[in-house]
Design a protein around this nucleic acid. Structure first.
Lengths: 187, 187
DNA sequence: ACCATAGTCTTACGCTGTATCAATGTCAAC
DNA sequence: GTTGACATTGATACAGCGTAAGACTATGGT
């Protein structure tokens, strides 16, 4: 607070005239960040293309604001406006042919995936060697007799295109959604 | 630190004989928590059943240690032992028929999903009304003309079986994995 | 001229992690 | 039996944090 205040040429306590607490201030920051998400294009384009767009836009928040993104997952929503992207996505899924219950399940699946992936990405995946701490864990030097599977994927881990990997995850899920849409009665 | 110290009948600074910093101490806590994960059963049982078991076990950590779980996602791995569950899961996926690159992609998809879902769950999903703050956002009273889709799912949100919902998400992804295994050459 | 209001500053309190260093307990070597 | 090394703990202190309480100033309406 003191730092932010001095950034604004003001004492820390002046901020409390505008926000009741630091948490409320951060909530407002989150609100601003989430508001950066753009609605899906309304022109031609299949539902899954627009869905992909939404998810990439969501992940983009993590890239643009890595420090804020951790806070996005909290239940701090006071104004429903902050949930506009949720409304968009649900609408997308409903138009794709899912009933409300499945649209909700699909939404939670997709958003959990995107949230988890983007968050892991900003913190550095556990398997990824940390360039800032060369003394730390490095999958490339792992004991191949005890961890043969990790040894196997080590090369792929260090030379990983995260954009493509994120997209592949969406592929998996969308395939599942399509199956649900095609045969809504199946378990 | 002072609190933990007094819990142990000791001054706060005594802890620094065993851990160089609070962060290192928390890393050790995370290690202990992750070590609670059990290896997948080795008896008969399809790979996807064992995979489900792993994911439920992972999510179970969040239920058993909701405050610690946020820290699980950090790259704080120093000893590869803490990555034993990763090795198990990779092995599962490889045996299921995925090549190393796809096994890694599948692992990241599944773990991101489970991590994101479990984390959102412990914090309370954004859509879920907060029982501790009845004055906050409540999806049941949302404006149906501005947010028709959210209005539609409101009933399902409040009466949601998270176990089943989590399972449905796994269904989606596993279906995608099966398609990849069936036709490895497709995009 | 008066007062309400908005905006800011000052001071202070209790909390945090931890650097520094002194004190103690323990045990092996001489 | 004394000594010295080392493991462990305690005491004190410091800089940082969020924020409660209240005083001060500036502004605009009456």
């Amino acid at each position: 607070m003191r730092k932010l205040g001095s950034e604004l040429g003001v004492e820390a306590m002046a901020l409390y005239h505008y926000f009741p607490s630091k948490e409320a201030l951060l909530d407002a920051v989150v609100e601003r960040v989430v508001a950066e998400m753009k609605p899906p294009r309304d022109d031609g384009g299949s539902w899954d293309e627009r869905l992909r767009e939404m998810l990439h836009s969501y992940r983009g928040l993590a890239h643009a604001h890595p420090h804020v993104f951790v806070l996005v997952g909290r239940r701090t929503v006071r104004k429903p406006e902050a949930l506009q992207p949720v409304e968009w996505t649900l609408d997308l899924l409903r138009r794709a042919g899912l009933d409300p219950a499945h649209a909700l399940a699909a939404f939670r699946t997709l958003s959990s995936y995107a949230f988890g992936y983007a968050l892991s990405e900003t913190r550095g995946f556990a398997l990824q060697p940390d360039p800032e701490d060369p003394s730390g864990f490095d999958i490339r030097t792992i004991d191949p007799t005890r961890f043969p599977r990790m040894r196997e994927v080590a090369a792929h881990v260090v030379a990983c295109d995260h954009d493509a990997e994120f997209e592949r995850g969406i592929d998996f899920i969308i395939r599942g959604l399509r199956a649900q849409i095609a045969s809504p009665d199946a378990a």
